[in-house]
Simulated scan of single mutants.
Amino acid sequence: MERTTIRRATEEDAERLTALVQESRAYRGRYATVIAGYRVTAAYIERHRVFAAVGTAGRLLGFYSLVLEPAELDLAFVSDEAQGTGVGRLLMEHMLGQARRAGLTDVRVVSNPPAERFYLRMGAERVGVVAATPPKVTWERPELRFVVDRQHVTGTGAASSG
């Protein structure tokens, strides 16, 4: 299994992050409208805490975006090829470490329905449902919450998935 490093995303990552979103199997079919035309811009990366998981030779494996006000995991994607390898877990652990350092007590997640099980396995709890917002989102979405453990602050952001 390749070594995975989590680092702060830069403006130069915007196109690769956008491509990862657009290519995601999780948003095909019924869920495609959510990401239709969606772009991760340099301005978005500058404004929020966006972190990328990169593997050997800088290969993009996934990323997340933590918005501080109000506290929310806005984006979280793992490349189709890296799913099931522990990259998602590394990203969530890193996100919770960032939330702790920022002084957050919890982090909201509005999930794509198929991703809900992943977030529950990562320790989130379901707190409700977000209503559909047609025409782009025509289904209810699970609303979850990570409680930020104030006792433990994670490491530096470099992690190994293997």
Rank of each mutant, 00 (worst) to 15 (best):
H48V: 07
F77W: 11
A76L: 15
T85C: 03
L91T: 06
P114L: 04
S65A: 15
P113V: 04
G62M: 03
Q98K: 06
R100T: 13
G103R: 12
G123T: 07
S24Y: 02
A132Q: 12
V109K: 07
V40G: 03
A82P: 09
R25Y: 02
R28T: 15
V129R: 15
A131Q: 14
S24L: 06
S65M: 10
D74V: 00
Y44T: 11
M122W: 01
R108I: 13
A26T: 07
R30N: 05
V50H: 06
R117N: 04
M92D: 00
L61W: 00
S65C: 13
E125W: 00
V54Y: 00
G128K: 10
T56D: 15
V54P: 02
F77C: 06
T41M: 03
L61R: 06
V109Y: 04
Y31F: 15
R39Y: 01
N112A: 08
D106V: 02
Y38G: 07
R121W: 00
S79F: 02
Y64H: 15
V129T: 15
A57M: 05
P135R: 12
E81T: 14
A42R: 09
E69P: 01
G84R: 02
P135D: 13
A82K: 09
T41N: 08
A43L: 05
L96V: 00
F77V: 08
R126G: 10
Y38V: 13
A99C: 06
G55A: 05
A43N: 08
R28D: 08
E72P: 00
L75D: 15
L61H: 03
L90T: 01
A71V: 05
